[in-house]
């Protein structure tokens, strides 16, 4: 990566202990030169937004497999807006049914990555979104 590394928050949102995907993404992005702050599991929207604020992250990647995304993800995005971070892109990963995706995008999610997405695809998308194509 050219220039200083981007700072990315990888967050496990809600009552969901399935964190292998989040850990694989966190490690994979680290290997692509990102600085990844990992929150650990069972985070509330307030905890995730507070971490995004204090860490001044360039991008927020939320992993959620519990099915609670319709409730929790808009809450996080609203908190980001309230704290002056409306410009921070939000990525969603995990199990997000096709039928829910339009609502997630309408709520402000920039991109949704489901099972089978490679680290490379994710990293390339992030670099393009943050304006640093390689």
């Amino acid at each position: 990566m050219n220039g200083p590394p981007f700072r990315i928050l990888v967050a496990k949102l809600g009552l969901d202990g399935h964190d292998r995907g989040a850990k694989v993404i966190a490690r994979g992005l680290r290997d692509r030169g990102f600085e990844v702050i990992y929150t650990g599991i069972r985070q509330t929207p307030a905890m995730v937004a507070r971490a995004a604020l204090q860490e001044d992250v360039d991008l927020l990647a939320i992993s959620i497999l519990s099915g609670a995304h319709n409730t929790l993800v808009p809450r996080v995005i609203n908190l980001l807006r309230e704290q002056g971070q409306a410009d921070v892109p939000v990525l969603l990963g995990g199990i997000i049914p096709e039928v829910d995706r339009p609502a997630m995008r309408a709520a402000g999610v920039a991109e949704i990555f489901g099972p089978g997405t490679t680290i490379g695809e994710t990293a390339d998308w992030i670099l393009a979104a943050l304006g640093r194509d390689e």
Binding site: P5, R30, V36, Y38, E55
Partner: peptide, 10 residues
């Protein structure tokens, strides 16, 4: 890689 995994916040 020049990247880092910052995990103390957990």
């Amino acid at each position: 890689s020049g990247g880092a995994l910052l995990g103390d916040r957990i």
